[in-house]
């Protein structure tokens, strides 16, 4: 095609654009929001972190009758700014965003569109106008519980398949501050039960590859770990699978994953992303929302917790379960203080 034709094509596109630019102005946020967007860096279907958030979004849609949309970036940085822009262009009034990998972009968009409510989930991102509300989870507390559960399991050789070594494992997605916080709490919890317990961690380097998760878990099981805590979203589903195949144990994360591999998932370290999202939205709906806050969700606030159900009781003896419940109430009351990673 000749360059002249290319030129006329571009010219045509430009003219069309000018003719059809329907000013997408950032209108002032309406009194009651109509549209809610949920932007995630990764993808749904992990039965864990992102799905937990989606449950909260679905609840908002049902209870408040607003339109909701989820934009998945699938860990593709090319889509990060597009996702934010699409939400703006769609005229979302409230944007919940899990912004791993595009914190800078979120700050710029929040500064540029101050009339929208930007709620950043799971990390703390502060823009210069201080309009981003942050939902920060105290992972250390939930992970402390997971560590305690893992320790109670590995020290109890009467449980089927548990060896005499006091080794527990963990598989993280990336080596990042949030995963480090999980590990920090996990280790504290384990040492609270028995100071001689050794924690071994492997980072899979990916959040959406169950095969790598499985390899990492098998590596830990072959090093005589009895239980592996997965902190890796979809990658972690491979950890749960490995546990079932090796006749060992795993601990789930974020959502209740106990039933995914029955008899092999001892418990799950709950991170109630959905509840937190729902909670923040409720403050918007009843006009008590304050932009720019950092909301901390730990065990006391119900943001973190441990999923103890029949699957757990199938594996752990009653006294261990009893002990976990006691620890949970001690953390909640402040009798046990869990040290924060940063």
């Amino acid at each position: 095609m000749s360059s002249r034709r290319l030129g006329s094509f571009v010219a045509a596109v430009v003219v069309l654009t000018m003719a059809m630019t329907v000013g997408v102005m950032p209108g002032a946020a309406a009194a009651s929001p109509q549209k809610v967007a949920y932007i995630i860096n990764g993808g749904l279907g992990d039965l864990s972190f992102y799905d937990s958030g989606q449950a909260g979004i679905d609840r908002i849609a049902k209870e408040f009758g607003v339109q909701t949309r989820t934009i998945e970036c699938g860990f593709d940085p090319a889509r990060y700014s597009q996702a934010l822009q699409a939400a703006v262009q769609w005229n979302a009034d409230v944007v919940f965003v899990i912004s791993y990998g595009f914190e800078d972009l979120l700050m710029q968009y929040a500064d540029q569109y101050p009339n929208k409510r930007w709620i950043n989930v799971d990390t703390v991102v502060e823009n210069s106008r201080r309009t981003i509300t942050n939902v920060d989870f105290i992972e250390e507390e939930g992970a402390f519980m997971a560590g305690a559960a893992a320790a109670l399991l590995t020290t109890d050789t009467t449980i089927k398949g548990v060896n005499s070594d006091k080794i527990i494992g963990a598989v993280g997605g990336d080596d990042d501050p949030v995963i480090r916080a999980f590990l920090y709490g996990y280790e504290q919890g384990a040492k609270y039960i028995d100071p001689k317990i050794e924690v071994r961690a492997v980072f899979a380097g990916t959040w959406d590859d169950p095969v790598r998760g499985k390899q990492a878990a098998n590596q830990l099981y072959s090093q005589r770990a009895d239980v592996v805590f997965q902190i890796a979203s979809l990658t972690g589903s491979g950890v749960l699978e490995a546990a079932a195949e090796a006749g060992k144990y795993a601990i789930g994360v974020d959502s209740n994953q106990n039933g995914l591999q029955p008899g092999h998932v001892v418990t799950s370290c709950l991170k109630n992303v959905g509840d937190a999202i729902y909670g923040v939205y409720r403050t918007i709906a009843n006009n008590t929302y304050k932009p720019g806050e950092v909301l901390e969700y730990g065990i006391r606030q119900g943001g973190m917790g441990l999923a103890i159900d029949d699957y757990t009781r199938q594996i752990l003896p009653a006294r261990s379960v009893q002990r976990l419940v006691e620890i949970q109430s001690k953390i909640s009351s402040g009798a046990i203080t869990v040290k924060r990673y940063q």
Partner: peptide
Amino acid sequence: SYSLFSQF
């Protein structure tokens, strides 16, 4: 409209 027909 999200790819051509607005400035952004």
